[in-house]
Each structure stands twice: as C-alpha cells, then as structure tokens.
Computed example of a mutant assay.
Amino acid sequence: MKPARPKRTRLRAAAKANVPGLADAQVKAIQERIGHHFKDRSLLVQAFTHPSAVAAADSVRLSNQRLEFLGDRVLNLLIAERLIERRKTESEGELAPRLNRFVKKGACAEAFRHFGLQEHIILSDGEVASGGRDRESTLGDACEALIGAIYQDGGLSAARKFVEAGWTHQFSSAPAETRDPKTLLQEWAQGQGLPLPKYNVIERSGPDHEPVYEIEVQVPPHGAAKAKGSSKRDAERNAAALLLDSLTGTP
C-alpha cells in the first residue's frame, strides 16, 4: 500500500486538474484559422476561457478578462491607425464614429464568427445551456481577448494581420458615410435650439463579466427613450437611435 501524498501535494494536483485546457486538435484548428501559431500556448487557452469556466478565486489568473482588457486597447489602436492611413481628409469628428463602428462588441463578435471559433470557447455547462456560445457579448469578449493574446505572443504586426483578416468584410461593407446615433441626435437637438441630450444609467444588471446596462436619453421637452447594451457606450448609442427614430423617423 502506497503512503498517502502530503495534503499540499494533493491540493496542487487538484488545482492543476481544474485548469481549463484545449485539446491539441483544437489548438491546431484555431491556429490554422487565424493564421498565427502561438509560441506560448497558455495565452491561447486563456483567451478562450470564459470566466464561468473557472472558480471566482481563479478568474483573474485563468479567465480571458485581462486579455480582453488589453485586446480592446490594441484593437482601438489598430483601427485608428487604419483610419488615419486611409481617410486622410477626414476630421476627428468624422473619424470617431467610424472607429466606434469597428470596435464595438457586435463588430468583434462578427469577426469571431468569421473565423468560426465559437465551438472552442471554454464555458461552464450552465453557460452552454443558456446559449452562451452564441451570445454576442461572449463572442466579442473572446475576440478582444484573442487580439490581446496574439499581441502578447507575436507583437503588433501579428495582431494587425488578425484584425485585417477578421474585419475584411466589415471594412468592405462599411457605408461611405458612417454616423453615430449619438452624434446625429446631438446635431438634431442643436438644430432645434434645444439643450444637448442627457444620458442616465437606469439599471446595471448581470454578472461582472457580462454586464447589461439600461440607459435613458432625454431631449426635453421632446421625449425620451430607453435601451440596453453590453456596455454604457452601446446602450447610449441604442437609446439615441430609438429617440432619433421617434423624433425624425431616421434612425
């Protein structure tokens, strides 16, 4: 009979068993689709690990939240860089709504679907059952995290190649004139001699890793509108579009 292992050793083994992972076949498939082969495989695994798949105490260390934070900043830089290079006659006010269009959560989710990576996200059973694998916020977060992982593993040029490939369809289908609903609503209010629209947070719900914001926008005395989004920015844009539609018939 073998002697029992020390308690510390058993705890280490249990912790190791709970670390999320991807099978070799999954890693190979992901790398072939995105066109980047990771030197540090742990970055790829972390990018695909949803917070629901790990214990709360391990979320910072193992989930994709920190990489998502980094990837969001890298994406903003790369899209801004692209716009500066290709829209040489446009002002900051014209470039800003274009930037917002390409970096919002929905755009990231679309890019993630373009690569067909949804099946590889590591989720809890509960998240899978509730449709998490198709949820826009989940896909968008994973895409931002993957950008962050590629940046850390291969630098800015590797991240740039990923964004150029993932956003190709969105770049080509973008309308010549992309206007943000908040900008349009502000211009409408100013044209009517009214105060600027006011935005208020009505409610914040959902877990920390997947919040839902409800925002109300008001243009007294012409009315108000409420809308939800996975970020304050998206909720404000959605609310502005609804109010603009009710005021002018042009969302």
Rank of each mutant, 00 (worst) to 15 (best):
M1W: 02
M1S: 15
K2Y: 10
K2D: 14
R5E: 12
P6I: 04
K7P: 04
R8S: 14
R10I: 00
R12K: 12
N18I: 08
A25S: 11
Q26L: 05
V27Q: 09
K28R: 15
Q31D: 02
Q31S: 05
H36I: 00
F38P: 11
K39Y: 01
R41N: 06
R41K: 13
R41F: 08
L43R: 14
L43T: 04
L44S: 06
H50M: 00
P51E: 09
A53L: 00
V54A: 12
A56Q: 14
A56T: 11
A57I: 13
D58N: 05
D58F: 06
S59E: 14
R61A: 12
N64F: 02
R66M: 09
G71K: 03
G71S: 06
L77K: 15
I79A: 01
E81T: 13
I84F: 09
E85T: 01
R87I: 01
K88F: 05
E90F: 12
S91A: 12
S91H: 03
G93K: 12
E94C: 08
R98H: 14
R98Y: 14
R101G: 13
R101C: 15
R101W: 13
V103Q: 04
V103D: 07
V103W: 01
V103E: 11
C108E: 11
C108Y: 07
R113I: 11
I122A: 12
D125Q: 06
D125V: 03
E127R: 06
S130A: 15
S130G: 07
G131S: 13
G132I: 05
G132Y: 11
G132D: 09
D134M: 12
R135S: 13
S137E: 12
T138N: 11
L139Y: 04
D141C: 10
C143I: 02
C143A: 14
L146D: 05
I150K: 02
I150H: 03
Y151D: 01
Y151N: 08
Q152R: 11
Q152L: 15
Q152C: 07
D153A: 06
G154Q: 02
L156W: 03
A159L: 01
K161I: 12
F162C: 07
F162N: 00
A165S: 13
W167L: 12
S172L: 13
P175H: 08
A176C: 08
A176I: 03
R179A: 13
D180Q: 09
P181G: 04
K182I: 15
E187V: 07
W188F: 12
A189N: 04
A189G: 03
G191N: 08
G193H: 01
L194T: 07
P197K: 06
P197S: 09
P197A: 09
P197T: 05
K198Q: 15
V201N: 04
V201W: 09
R204N: 02
D208P: 05
D208E: 11
E210L: 10
E210W: 04
P211S: 02
V212M: 11
Y213E: 02
Y213T: 04
I215A: 04
I215R: 07
V219N: 01
V219Y: 01
P220L: 09
P221F: 06
G223M: 02
K226G: 04
A227W: 03
A227Y: 07
G229H: 10
S231V: 01
R233C: 00
A241E: 10
L242Y: 00
L242I: 04
D245C: 05
S246D: 08
S246E: 11
T250H: 03
P251V: 06
